[in-house]
Simulated scan of single mutants.
Amino acid sequence: MSPVSPSAEKTERLMNLILALTSARRPVSKQKLRQALPSYAAAASDEAFDRMFERDKDELREMGIPITTTVIDVLFDDEVGYRIDSSETALPAISFEPEEVAALALAARAWSTASISGAASAALRKLRLAGVEIDDSMAAGVEPRIRTREPAFEAVRAAVTALQPITFDYRKSEGTVDTRHVQPWALKNWHGRWYLTGYDLERQAERAFRLSRFEGPVRKKGRAGGYSVPSGHVPEVAVGTSDPQPAGTAVVRLRHGRGGALRRHAVTTREVDDRWSEIELPYRQGLTESDVAALGAHAVAVSPPELVERVRTALAGAAVANGGAA
C-alpha cells in the first residue's frame, strides 16, 4: 500500500478541523481538538502541535472560513475555544430559470454517450435533490451528442486538469508515427472531433493534436502543476489551423433563430421568406451533416447531393431509434 502524500494528509487534517469546528455547539479548546483529531494527536510535542494548529487556523482564515475565538471560562481568560459558525459559511439557495434548467438538462443529455456521462447524470441527481424540477419529457430524437470514444480521452482530460506534461505516439496525416512531448493546455471538440491543444516541448511551439490519431497509451512526463496555460490561449484558433480543408461548399436552409453554430461558418446568407434563410458554408464531410441533422426540422440540406443523402440517413436512423419508421 502506497504511503499517503503530504498534501493529501494536510487536506484531510484541514477537512477534519472544519468538520469538528462546524459541528461543535460550543467553542472547542485546543486540547480537546488535539485529543479528537488523529493528525493532532500524533504530533511529536506540544510545540509541534501548536505550530501545526496555528498554521491550519491561519490557512482556513485565508480561505475565507471564519474561525471565531471565544473565552471558554470567564474565570480563566487564558483558556479560549474555537468554532466555525455554519451560518457564516452556508451558501444561499440556488434557483434556476426554466430556460437555465432546460439548458443544464440538455447539456447532461449531450454527454450521455460520453465517457464522463456518469458525472453529468450525478449533477442532475444533485439538482433534483436540491428541489430543482428537471423535465424528463424533452423530445429525445435528433439532439446534440458529445462522444468520447477515443481511448486517449480520459488520460488527456486528467492531464489537462492537473497541468501534467505527457508524452504519446502520434500518427501524422501522411501515416508516419512519431513521439510527442507536450504540456496540455485544453481539450476542444471541433466539428465532431476531439483535439488537444498545448505546447510541444521539442518543437518549442503551440500545437493541436487530434485524439483519434493517438497511438497507444498516454504517458505522464514530469510533475503536475509545473506550468500554466497562457492567458491569451484560444483553443479554437489552434485547432482551426490544423483542421483539414473543406471539400467544397454546402447549401443549407435554416429557420430564423436556429443553427447558430452553422451560421458562424456561413460564407453567404440570403433570406428565403419570413421563416427561412439559406446559407453557404464550407462542407466538411462527416461533420456538416451531423450539425444539420442535429437541428431536425429546423434545417434542410440543399446541396451537395451527398450532404442531402447523409442527412436523410441520419434522420432515418434517429426515427428508427425512437420507435418510428425510417
Rank of each mutant, 00 (worst) to 15 (best):
M15P: 01
H256K: 10
D135A: 11
T113E: 12
L14T: 08
L33G: 14
A93H: 07
T22F: 10
L254I: 13
L129P: 00
P230G: 01
M52P: 02
Y195N: 08
R264K: 04
Q164V: 05
A261C: 05
L196Q: 08
P165S: 03
E206S: 06
T89V: 11
K126F: 09
D73S: 13
A266G: 12
R25C: 01
V177C: 07
S115Q: 09
I84G: 05
T269D: 04
H265W: 05
D78E: 12
R255V: 03
E174T: 01
L187W: 05
F153C: 03
R213H: 09
G248V: 00
E174P: 00
G226I: 03
I84Q: 11
T22G: 13
A261N: 07
L21H: 06
L163H: 10
E236G: 12
L106A: 13
S45Y: 07
A90M: 10
A20K: 11
R128W: 08
A130K: 07
A325S: 10
Y82G: 02
H191M: 15
A105K: 04
V177G: 05
F168K: 02
S242V: 15
S29C: 06
G141A: 10
G240Y: 13
G216Q: 06
Q285F: 14
E9M: 10
A119K: 10
A122Q: 11
D169R: 11
A321D: 15
V320I: 05
Y170T: 13
A297K: 04
A266K: 07
A20F: 06
F153I: 13
R270F: 01
R147I: 15
T269G: 03
H265L: 11
G216P: 01
L287S: 15
E309Y: 01
E54P: 01
A326S: 13
A224H: 07
P92T: 10
D50C: 05
R171F: 03
E133S: 12
W194N: 10
D46Y: 14
L129N: 09
